[in-house]
Design a protein around this nucleic acid. Structure first.
Lengths: 240, 240
DNA sequence: TGTACATCAGTGAACGCGCGTTCACTGATGTAC
DNA sequence: TGTACATCAGTGAACGCGCGTTCACTGATGTAC
C-alpha cells in the first residue's frame, strides 16, 4: 500500500539496516530456541540444533546471546508469551459472543481455551520447563512469578465480567477467582494432554459451571472481612 | 523381639542373602535416582551422581539397570509413588476427622494437602519430569496416564463421601469431580511453589467450598443424561 | 555519485570437558562334597 | 563342620562421543571524503 520515498520513515520493506537485521536474527533465534526447548527440554536441546533451526550457525547464537542459559532466560523475561496474547484474544472474543447473548459462555470459553491449548502443544511444555527452572533456580522465581501474574492479568477482566453477570458473594475477590480458574485449567489441560479421553472439553465446561454456581451460593462461609472462619453448616444433626 | 533360629523364616535381620542385597541396592539406586531427577531433571542428572548419592559406583547402576533411561522408566512404572500413599493416608485422616464432626473438612483437607505438597517439594518436580517425558515420548503416555489414574483412584473415595454428605446434582459423576479437584490442586500447588504469597492455603479451601456449593446448586444445567446442553438462565431480561 | 577504509554480524572449525556406557577385575556369598 | 571351587554384585579406570564455548576469519553494510 504505502510506497515510501528512498528515506522511508517506516523501516519495514527495502533493505534492512544492520541493527534491524541483527534484531531479526535475534528474534529468529529466540523462536527457534522456544521450539527446541519445548520439544527437547532445556538440557537436552543443543545450541547447534537451535541455531540450525533458525537457519544460522552456532556462532550467530553466541554473537547475539551470552550462552545457552542466557538465551533461555531471555525467553523467560523479554518475551511476552504468544499464549498470553492468544488468551487475551480469546477473552475479547468470548466477551463479544457473550454480549450477543445467544451462546453458553462457559462452554464457549472452555472449548476455546481447550482448542488453543490443544493446538499449540509446545506452549505447555515450555511453561513446564520454565516452572522447573524456577523451582531449581530460586533466583529466577520472581521472573516466573511475574509471568504468571501476566496470565492472571490477562484473564482477570473476563472473570470480573463473569462475576458481575452471574453474581457472587460479597467477599469474593475477582483475582482469587481468576487464580482458581487459571489453576483449574492448567491442571486439567495437563491431564488432558496425557489422557484426552479422560478429560473432555465438557469436563472443563462443567467445572466452570460448578465454580460459578458455587460463587453465587457460597455466601454463607466468609463475610467481606474474615476469610478463614470455619463453617457450622456441615454438621449433621444426629449421627450414628 | 523375635529371636529366630539359624534358619530364620523372616529374612529381615541377620545377613542378607545375595538376592536380597541386590534388591536393596536396586531400591537405593531408585531412591537416589528419584531425588537426582527431581533436583536436576532427567537430562541434567548424571548416572555418576545418582550412583554416588546411593553410595555405589556407576558400575552398580549398570549391573541393576540397562541404562539411564530404563532407570527413569522403572521409576515411572514400577514405583508406586510415595505421594499417592501419602495422599491416601491424608484421605483416611480427613475421613476420621470429619467423622468426628468438629472441624471444617474443606479447610482440613486443603491445608493438609498443601502441607504435604510444601514438604516434599521434589514430588511435584518429578511429576513434572514424568509429564514432560510423556509429552515428548508418546509411547510412554499410557504409563503416565495409568499413574494419573492411580491418583484419581486414591482421591475418589473421599470425593464420593463428600458428594454424599454435602449433596450434588443427579448427573454429577464422582470421578469427574475427583478429576476436577485433582486438576485444581495440581494447578494451584504449582502456582504456589512459584509465588506462595499469591496462593495461600485458604485459597484452596475457598476453591473447594465454591466447588461443592456449586455441585449442590448447579442441578439446572445438565440432567442425568445429556451433558452438553446450553443453559437458558444466564440471559438477563432487559439489557442496555 | 564514487572510492577507500572501518565495522561487525555471522561463519565454521577447533578445543576441552563431562557424560553414558563398557569391561576386566575383586572379593564376598553360595554350592558341592 | 570344613574345604575347594563357582558365581556374581559391585568396582573403577578407560573409551568415545556430543556438547557448549571460543576465535580467527569473511564479506556485506556503514562511514568519510
Amino acid at each position: 500500500m504505502y510506497n515510501v520515498d528512498e528515506e522511508g520513515a517506516t523501516p519495514q520493506r527495502r533493505r534492512l539496516t544492520r541493527a534491524e537485521a541483527k534484531a531479526r536474527t535475534r528474534e529468529q533465534l529466540l523462536d527457534a530456541a522456544a521450539r527446541a526447548f519445548a520439544q527437547k527440554g532445556f538440557a537436552a536441546a543443543s545450541v547447534e540444533e537451535i541455531a540450525e533451526l533458525a537457519g544460522y550457525s552456532t556462532g550467530a547464537l553466541y554473537s547475539n546471546f551470552d550462552g545457552k542459559e542466557q538465551l533461555f532466560l531471555e525467553l523467560l523475561t523479554a518475551r511476552r508469551s504468544r499464549g498470553i496474547a492468544r488468551q487475551a484474544a480469546a477473552v475479547t472474543e468470548i466477551l463479544e459472543e457473550e454480549a450477543a447473548g445467544n451462546e453458553d459462555p462457559f462452554a464457549a470459553l472452555s472449548q476455546l481455551l481447550v482448542k488453543v491449548a490443544d493446538r499449540n502443544a509446545e506452549f505447555a511444555a515450555l511453561q513446564a520447563e520454565f516452572w522447573l527452572y524456577a523451582v531449581r533456580n530460586p533466583e529466577a522465581m520472581g521472573i516466573v512469578a511475574a509471568k504468571l501474574d501476566e496470565q492472571v492479568d490477562a484473564l482477570e477482566p473476563l472473570t470480573t465480567l463473569a462475576v458481575e453477570r452471574f453474581g457472587a458473594a460479597q467477599g469474593v475477590s475477582p483475582r482469587a477467582v481468576t487464580r482458581v480458574i487459571l489453576g483449574l485449567f492448567q491442571g486439567l489441560v495437563r491431564q488432558r494432554r496425557i489422557d484426552p479421553a479422560a478429560v473432555p472439553a465438557e469436563l472443563l465446561t462443567q467445572a466452570l459451571r460448578w465454580l460459578f454456581a458455587g460463587l453465587q451460593s457460597a455466601t454463607t462461609t466468609a463475610g467481606p472481612q474474615a476469610q478463614g472462619g470455619h463453617t457450622a453448616a456441615p454438621k449433621t444433626p444426629d449421627d450414628g
